[in-house]
């Protein structure tokens, strides 16, 4: 039998017939359990992502059932695999097309740092072109590691304040990448 678990309510004030909590927490809870990932799979890690999505590991247990192949509706950009210099502008364009709030996960050594490919044609980590929230190490990471990275993203989403995206610090970060 399947063991269905429902996520616990955030801290708040409870009384007969009502429950009050802050907007941040309620929305964070909803968002973190219904992330729409955009799989930007270029190479080996993409195959491990396939395994993560497959029946054995099943990422949909974490509310990421629905892959969004259109960046417009995606919340989470999962970059899996080597990004070459030819691919860099494409990746950046995809990131720009995503609507706020957006999170980025660099899966695998290549996306995080260029990995073993320290060559003239490979971008040495995607953080040269877009800001990254979570890095997942491994070459390729096991599906468990990808899920762990995904849970770290969920944690971020759950605890982030609604206004974080308008903070000067965040704006400054984006400006550093030349993104308005």
């Amino acid at each position: 039998m399947s063991d269905i678990q429902i996520v616990e309510a955030p801290a708040g004030v409870e009384g007969s017939g009502f429950f009050a909590t802050s907007m941040d927490k309620a929305i964070g809870l909803a968002r973190s359990n219904s992330l729409w990932p955009l799989p930007f799979a270029t190479s080996c890690c993409g195959i491990e992502f396939m395994a993560t999505m497959g029946s054995h590991y099943d990422l949909s247990r974490f509310g990421a059932e629905r892959l969004s192949f259109s960046p417009r509706q995606a919340d989470l950009l999962m970059v899996m695999g080597t990004i070459s210099k030819k691919m860099g502008p494409v990746l950046r364009q995809v990131y720009l097309q995503m609507a706020e709030p957006r999170w980025v996960m660099a899966v695998g050594a290549c996306a995080s740092s260029g990995g073993i490919f320290d060559t003239y044609s490979v971008l040495q980590g995607i953080d040269e072109v877009i800001p990254v929230d979570v890095y997942v190490p491994g070459c390729p990471p096991r599906p468990e590691a990808i899920i762990d990275g995904f849970m770290a993203i969920q944690q971020l989403v759950r605890t982030e304040s609604l206004r974080r995206r308008e903070e000067p610090k965040y704006q400054e970060l984006l400006a550093k990448y030349g993104i308005q």
């Binding site: 691919m87 044609s121 490979v122």
Partner: peptide, 30 residues
């Protein structure tokens, strides 16, 4: 094509024989 060109052949010229095995992994990773 060439969107994930990683210069395997160039790397191979700089690695001893036994260190080329991990490169071949990433050719057809299936």
């Amino acid at each position: 094509i060439g969107y994930i060109h990683r210069a395997f052949e160039k790397i191979a010229e700089h690695r001893p024989f036994y260190q080329i095995t991990p490169l071949t992994d990433r050719l057809n990773y299936c």
